[in-house]
Design a binder for these strands. Structure first.
Lengths: 335, 335
DNA sequence: ATGAAAGCGCTAACAT
DNA sequence: ATGTTAGCGCTTTCAT
């Protein structure tokens, strides 16, 4: 037997309108009636049908989030912080694993639209600009996280990648290193490009000429870290220090370094982007740029919910881009 | 201007029923009509309203999953594997972070019910047995993951915790250790209890008497790992080897061990439950019990979808409990 | 304070 | 092959 608002109404001897009022704590229901209704609800184990409610109210109280890959620590922290804030405001979260694949991203954007989520937080691949622009034009509420998209004007929450990388590389330079290698990811991404730029700025400020042999571009994945580190370190004229620009690549780098039998900091100085507790218990804990990952997620979600509620978050209709700062923790990975 | 199935119908000059048929690839629509409809759909950028469809079909093509804590590697792998399989069958996933908190668990169970998800995968806290039984009785499709609940009969997918722990501890014994400490979590959980039992079985088979000073029970969290390891190792009569029964506690244990300046394996032998790539690049990579985490998630999801489709997965209406095996990887954490 | 009834956008049974 | 229509379960306007 299916129970719905009608069953409750019948049982309580009132109309469905009254049940609805009680359900939403609407004023104007006599205390006595309310009691009777609540009794019926509990006796029938009635739970409102959110699907029907969403249809009627044109509001789902659900936000969608598309992340690159839940398996990486960065995104799982994002997922958690988004969910925390969403929940605080009574929203549910549909988590989608975009896998950094533009096709999956597009598919999920469509799924989220079909499900009429109230808003979307997107860690964009950088593609699908057309579709995303169309969404924005049809009044979809979107906040970008961690990266921007060429050709799309949209509110976003980012990290100051350049400054973070700059601080780390400058630290290496201050410690006396001159030949510093960098391993970074996709340059068509805000993150990859920014981190490279920070590296270059630190070098140039110190009057160290750019050496393209020391610059390796990969995919922000462990595999890239393994391979690029090998390329860099097998060179007879290898760098004295390494800056690795995300955690997954750092894992890869450490695998190669261990395999080659190199010791940090004796054989190689190191600084990395992204922190992890595992990094801090390594034999030589790594100096790292800490991203405010939790704030990234919560800030984006707060902004999204404001947008959903119709509050303006930027000024004069320009999209707002919030940039959060990083911190450098000094550990024992340099001489 | 809102566009719905009616707008498309008007534009294509057919009835909404025909649009619906095209949308769902129903046979019995003339090719020519279909083309016209598709054209109208694309021109209007129409996307079906899944909320309305769900209401009508009484089917949301959504499954809910409640995990302990997405921040831990274990659960994020689970989330990913569940999502992969769900997606393969055309289901979306609502991810809920139960935080191992019975109240949050209950709240989320209600949310999922209200949203009429087609099924639920639950990593249970062990509480809320009454509510969960009521759900099951009202025909909700639920599969438990990783743990069981006292007083609830429900399909489940587990790991052979006892056997895994047994193998690890037996290995330590085979390497010559006799005084072996264990750090484990909640004994009222299938996991905590099973892992302790495996430890005890290995000891008893080897004729080593149980020593309660060597058994530390905590919360499966980093903090417990830190504290319990300290208790164990500060004892003048400290164990020669340590078995830690999950990854978060292992992180904690390593923090304490590093802090105390102890060396593995010289000062202490180690074996742990759960693997991680970080564990394998430690100075002394740890011998570890590998759980088939990915299979856990995918097996549970496959089972859930079968249930949703009305296929029986157990025999004669008994719930089915699938137990997956673990593997022991030997590394360099013992003498 | 409460009820009647329309309608959110879709699907499915039935009719043509 | 296509259309008509009722209705999924709720909310909301308008009556009373």
């Amino acid at each position: 037997m299916k129970i719905n608002i009608k069953s409750v109404a019948d049982k309580a001897g009132v109309s469905t309108a009254t049940i609805s009022r009680v359900l939403r704590n609407y004023p104007g229901v006599r205390e006595k009636t309310k009691k009777r209704v609540l009794k019926a609800i509990s006796e029938l184990d009635y739970e409102v049908n959110a699907v029907a409610r969403s249809l009627r109210q044109r509001k789902t109280f659900t936000i969608g989030i598309i992340v690159g890959n839940v398996l990486s620590q960065f995104y799982s922290i994002i997922a958690k912080s988004v969910e925390d804030v969403a929940h605080k405001y009574g929203y549910n979260m549909i988590l989608c694993n975009g896998d950094d694949d533009p096709e999956k991203e597009l598919r999920y954007l469509k799924v989220l639209k079909a499900n009429r989520v109230d808003g979307i937080i997107l860690t964009p691949t950088g593609k699908n600009a057309d579709y995303i622009n169309r969404l924005i034009n049809t009044d979809a509420k979107i906040v970008l996280l961690d990266r921007l998209i060429d050709g799309v004007e949209c509110d976003a929450v980012l990290v100051d990648n350049e400054e973070g990388a700059y601080k780390a590389v400058k630290y290496l330079i201050d410690r006396g290193y001159r030949r510093i290698g960098i391993i970074t990811g996709y340059l068509d991404r805000t993150t990859g490009k920014g981190r490279l730029n920070g590296y270059l700025r630190a070098l140039s400020e110190a009057g160290i000429p750019r050496d393209d042999n020391l610059i390796k571009i990969g995919k922000f994945k462990k595999r890239s870290g393994i391979e690029l580190t090998r390329e860099l370190l097998q060179d007879p004229n290898r760098p004295e220090a390494l800056f690795v620009s995300n955690l997954d690549m750092t894992l890869g780098a450490m695998i190669t370094i261990k395999e080659m039998g190199l010791k940090i900091p004796d054989d190689l100085g190191m600084a990395v982007f992204d922190d992890s507790e595992w990094i801090s218990i390594l034999d030589s804990p790594l100096t790292a740029v800490i991203q405010p990952v939790h704030s990234l997620g919560s800030t984006a979600t707060e902004a999204l919910i404001k947008k959903i509620n119709g509050e303006k978050i930027g000024m004069n209709d320009k999209p707002i881009i919030i940039t959060l700062n990083t911190n450098l923790v000094i550990r024992n990975s340099t001489k």
